Amino acid sequence: MAQTQGAYYVPHGSHWPIIGSFGLIGTVGGAGLWLNEADTIGKPIMAIGVALLLFMMFGWFRTVIRESLSGAYNKQVDTSFRMGMLWFIFSEVMFFGAFFGALFYARALSVPWLGGEGHGALTNYFLWPHFSPAWPTNGPGAVGGAFSTMSAWGIPLLNTLLLLSSGVTVTIAHHALRAGHRTQLLIFLAATVLLGVTFLTFQAHEYIEAYEHLNLTLGSGVYGSTFFMLTGFHGLHVTLGAIMLTIIWLRCAKGHFTKDHHFAFEAVAWYWHFVDVVWLGLFLFVYVL
């Protein structure tokens, strides 16, 4: 039932939160047991937890979609959704901000200090007299052995062009939705998903190249850990974004959105643009500088 203008929609009692809670407990608990070499019980518990989470996500989002299509959400609810998405993206900014901060700390402070700069002169003299504070580094003792860095002008540059192009295609799709051009909307939204999947394919190839030919691994000291931490989590966000865009494409094909009411599309587009901006920072500070 549609809500009146001054009323805020209050959902009915839902079983999805408790299912999600059990799913999280199973996923995290099973992963913990698995990492502590309890494979026989850890793996199945984690698998059950992941299955419960997927079941919860499909079911809960289906419920929200049905509520939206039924006209249960008014302008006030739409505003709260927008604020929630903005806060979520802000939390993601802080998430990557912490990782970029770790990269800055290691590169601009820790490595020079270990090399003898400032108050690190005695530490360098007594503990690591032969350590050179050059970046990229795998630390004193060359943890993980010698490695080569990934060139910025190969796959990383290509992936940058792919993500920038995807930002253009999703914007064109948004304008097509607002103009009521259904075919153009579906074509450019599908192109956005294809560009994202291509990005992930090239990133997987990059990781294989790093491990097999460059000896650049997670064990390659501070550079290896920060490289894979930043690029890996970004790749995870691209994966999630591509999945969300695919779902939005299916909803567009079913005619769920109008030119005036399509916040779900806008929310995913915001997220995708955020992913693009983060990659530009990665390309500059991880690959180029």
Rank of each mutant, 00 (worst) to 15 (best):
H237D: 06
P136T: 13
G118H: 00
M46S: 07
I65N: 10
W272S: 10
A146M: 11
T149W: 07
E117S: 15
F96T: 14
V277Q: 05
S151Q: 11
D39F: 14
M56I: 01
W34P: 00
S80N: 09
Y287D: 07
A264N: 09
A269H: 09
A51R: 00
W279N: 12
F283G: 11
A146P: 07
G255Y: 02
G139L: 05
G6M: 09
L109Y: 07
T231G: 12
G97L: 12
F131K: 08
Q5S: 13
W135T: 06
V10A: 02
G101Q: 08
L200C: 01
T137D: 01
F126W: 10
A179T: 07
L35F: 15
K43T: 11
A242F: 09
S70G: 09
I248E: 04
V277A: 15
T149F: 09
I172E: 09
Q203T: 01
G154H: 05
V168L: 14
L86K: 12
Y287I: 08
P140F: 14
E117P: 05
R66L: 09
F55T: 02
G42I: 05
I208G: 00
F126T: 03
G141M: 14
N138G: 10
G120R: 06
G255M: 04
I25C: 07
A264V: 12
L114K: 01
P156C: 11
H175L: 04
K43A: 06
F131S: 04
V288K: 03
G139V: 03
L218A: 09
R182C: 03
A7S: 08
L186D: 04
E92I: 06
F147S: 13
M1A: 11
L103Y: 11
A264S: 14
G30T: 13
L158Y: 12
T137R: 02
K75G: 03
M46H: 03
A173W: 02
F131D: 02
F228G: 06
W279G: 13
A7P: 01
F283R: 07
L53Q: 08
V50I: 15
L164A: 15
Q184A: 08
G221D: 02
S68F: 03
I89P: 15
T171E: 15
T217G: 04
A7R: 04
L52G: 07
L157F: 15
E209A: 00
R251K: 01
Q76K: 08
L236G: 04
A267G: 13
Q184N: 10
N124S: 14
W113Q: 08
